[in-house]
Structures are given as C-alpha cells and as structure tokens.
Design a binder for these strands. Structure first.
Lengths: 200, 200
DNA sequence: CAAGATTGAGGACTCAATCTTT
DNA sequence: AAAGATTGAGTCCTCAATCTTG
C-alpha cells in the first residue's frame, strides 16, 4: 500500500564543492538578509532548520521502504530492535517509550498492532501488576532481522555513507549527549520490570 | 488547546562524563550483544537512532511551546520565516515545499490556515497561472518576528547551547550537504515565480 | 503530457481523561 | 497520591486522484 519513490523527477546534480556548501548553508538558512540577522548566526540557523528538514526527508523515505518490503513502520522496527537486544527479549512499555522518545500512548497502540500480528506478546509483570512486559516472539525476531537488513542498507546509503568517520563520531556523541540530558530522562539502562522467577 | 510541559516528573541527573557518554552511546544503540553485531558499528547505530529520537523530542517540545505562546506550529513558523527573508516576502508554494522538506499537499493546507488568519495572502502568478504565490502580510510579519524570538530562545537552550562551536559547524555542514544532495533536489535558490510588473 | 494546486483517505503521534495497582 | 496502561479526540503529514494551465 505504500512506496513509489519517484517524488518528482529525481535529477541528480554535480556534486557541489565544500565552499558551495557553506554558501548553501547560509542561503537555506537565509539569515544574512533577514531583519534581525545577528540573532541567528547562519551556521546555527542551518543546524536547526537542517536538522528538522533532514529528519523529515530521511524518515519519510525510510518509512516507505520498510513498509513496502516488510509491512512495518520505522517505529515498529525500532521497538522490535530494542526488544531483540534486551535480556529475554523483553521490556516494559514505559521503558520502550523512554528509549524511543515516543509517548507511552503511542507505544501502547503500536504494541496492539504487533500483538495482533503475533510479533510480540504482552505479559503483566509478576512483581508489579501495573506494568506490562512486552516480549518478542520467534516470528517477531525473524522479521526484525530481515527488516533491519533493509533499513540498515538504506540508512547507510542515504545517511552514514555520506559522512566521514569524524563526522559520524561527532554526531553520535552529540546526539547521545543531548538525549541523555533530556529533562524527562529517567536515568539508567532500564531493563524489563522483571521477575527472576522464570516463565513470565 | 495545547501546552503543558510537565510530561513526567522531570528530574535532572548529574552531568555524565564524556566517557560515560560513549558507553551510553553503545548502550542505547546496544549493538554489542545483538545478533549480527558487526553489521552496525555502535557509533553508526547511535547516529541513526539518536537522530530519530532527538528530532522527535526537540520537535515535540518546540511545537508545544510555540503553539502555546503564539498559536503557530513549527511548520507554520518555518514557512513564515522563509517568506520573511524572501524578496517581496513572496514565494511559490512549490518552492516552499522544497525548502521545507514537506509535501506540497501539506504546504497547501497550512497556507489555508495562515490565510484564514490573515497572516498570508495567495496570488495567482501573473506569468504562469498554474503557480500560486504566497505573500506574508504585515500582521504576518509581526507575528513571525515575535514567535521567532520564542523559538530561537528554546532552540538555543535545548540544542545549540549544548554544542561546541566545532560541533555546530560540523553539524551545519553535514546537514546541508545531505539535504542538498537529496535525490529530489530541484536545484538552486528558487525565488518566487514572479512578474516584475509590480503589485501582483 | 508535465507541473502546480487542491482534496479525500489514512497513518503517526500527542495530550487529556480514565482506570487499575502501588 | 503517583505510576503504568489504555482510549478518545485532534494535529501533522503523506500518498493517490483530480482539476487546471502550460
């Protein structure tokens, strides 16, 4: 039901020089002729506006691709990926929300769908009946692996391969720092609510 | 209709060291214990997942703030800001869509709303009756200026101030490069459709 | 036919309210 | 009272179809 990657004509341009790029930065941000120019140094404006714009474009295309090939959304795959790495392939919904930067509300509804498709199961936490543990099924795990391959390939080609190692490192460090310091941040690598008595 | 910034308890943590951050990078990305670990070097995974997560958080909070104080969405303000810097405060809808990384469809609907609120006006392009020029009104310009002040303050505090100059520059350069090379990229700093005969 | 704009349908996401358990 | 989960209502955004003009 999705996909069709020809948004428009898709003509490629000759690769611009770094010098042109700096010019482009300020042109896009355009705060040289603006009214209160000095408020926003061009690189700062470009960092913000570029951030918003790129995230929209990247997300949109990744979404269409993964949906087309695996009937999953990026967020679904993000959730499943986190479950796949978690001990016992299990995590509480609240922790998933925090780890993904999504509302608990959204997580709950996504889990509804994944559950319907038998990709995950829900289990009330044995030690705290308020919490719900989500566990990846075998089928869910398989789907995760194959879908991740598709996504990773896309992300590399459209994003990571365009970055120098230096840039990738800077980016990863900076992103993690900002996220970790987020006001709502609940600390620590929260594991599943948990039990220890086997077979939840 | 909007706003309420107390998502949860909002406790602050002690600032983590850079070393901890690297650990956090890999923990969040978590591709050390993953099944096909080597496919995604931790910094690469962190760059991608962090990018998605941060953009969601940043956007959500900025959205709530600007909506509460100025009854505008981030995209509305983005459009108005671009109009404010454009010659004659005018741009075609198609160009706005390209500049923002939004679908033309979305732009059209946002313009509907801005038009209703008398913040912009629509004018059929005199030289090409297919195109629609959008022009910022006086009231629109005033609103843009004040709202930008709010947004800029937020963006600085939550984003830019957390970055070193070095990081900001790297980020701006990298974002611009990726966006500029986007497959759909239509080239050039497209101005309004235009006329030259005054008073469109 | 292609490009610009608009509209209908639908997905992703959020907040606010509610219910349950601690 | 507070935390976890769920649901209703509403926003933001996209695609596909359609209409108009070049």
């Amino acid at each position: 039901m999705a996909a069709n990657n020809n948004r428009t004509t898709r003509r490629r341009r000759p690769a611009p020089s770094e010098a042109d790029l700096i010019a482009a930065v300020t042109a896009r941000a355009g705060y040289m002729m603006g009214d209160q120019a000095d408020q926003w140094p061009p690189t700062q404006a470009a960092a913000w506006e570029g951030f918003l714009e790129l995230s929209r474009r990247l997300r949109r295309d990744a979404e269409a691709l993964v949906e087309e090939r695996h009937q999953l959304s990026i967020s679904m795959l993000g959730i499943m990926g986190r479950l796949a790495r978690a001990p016992k392939h299990t995590l509480r919904q609240t922790d998933l929300a925090d780890a993904m930067g999504l509302s608990l509300s959204r997580i709950s509804r996504i889990i509804d769908i994944l559950e319907q498709h038998q990709l995950v199961t829900r289990h009330t936490c044995p030690t705290d009946a308020r919490a719900t543990n989500v566990k990846l099924t075998r089928a869910g795990h398989r789907r995760t692996t194959t879908a991740q391959t598709t996504l990773h390939a896309y992300v590399r080609q459209a994003f990571l391969d365009q970055l120098t190692d230096q840039e990738t490192t800077t980016l990863a460090t900076l992103l993690t720092r900002l996220i970790t310091r987020w006001p709502t941040g609940t600390e620590g690598t929260a594991a599943a609510c948990d039990d220890l008595r086997d077979r939840p």
